[in-house]
Design a protein around this nucleic acid. Structure first.
Lengths: 96, 96
DNA sequence: CGCCATTTTACCGATAAGGATAAGATGGCT
DNA sequence: AGCCATCTTATCCTTATCGGTAAAATGGCG
């Protein structure tokens, strides 16, 4: 039990990225030129095999003309744009 | 003109991260234990000196109990949770 | 079937992330 | 002033990202 974050975060981001690129009918080569990130690197990110850095994701999002948020969450989940904090109903005293 | 992404993305994320941590009154040490990321590394991220990986941001967001989106955008900007694509009013034929 | 575009994978080298630790710096407090 | 908690910075080390290139898959399409 190692606090798994969300098992396949990278795979999910990769799928969304690929979908967005497909929507704009761009090849990896073209997106590579737009972002300055090599096509092989983009391929690894899209297939969930690479843990990209924040600025790398930002470059991709900028090239695709979408906010970075779009790469990280589906619009369904992002619909709850109002409340974040669960209004503190737990405490983590054990860790501290 | 090198397509600057957003000049101080890392500094902005760092500020939001620090604000969230302050809200929950956590020290870097405590957040380090919660995330498995060392306190020095967290400090570098919060001060905008480190380009963290996606899974690193995800661990931090999970520990703070907020969606990753919260680290990347102010709620103000995130308010436009509806429309992303600018409805194609440009073309990038020059790059292709 | 063979071409050709696209993608994937595998190497290489350079740079950076991240843990650990320790040393400074900062600030509050008595 | 000293002490103490917290944060910052520096160093070393391992590992991973990332661009570049080139080589394999993959997938149409004629």
């Amino acid at each position: 039990m190692t606090m798994e974050i969300e098992p396949n975060l990278l795979a999910d981001v990769g799928r969304r990225l690929r979908a967005l690129r497909a929507d704009q009918e761009l090849t990896l080569e073209q997106l590579a030129r737009l972002t300055g990130i090599s096509a092989p690197a983009l391929s690894l990110i899209e297939t969930g095999k690479r843990d990209a850095r924040l600025t790398t994701l930002a470059k991709i999002a900028a090239a695709l003309r979408v906010p970075i948020r779009t790469l990280l969450e589906d619009p369904a989940d992002a619909a709850s744009t109002g409340g974040d904090l669960p209004a503190e109903g737990y405490d983590l005293g054990d860790y501290l």
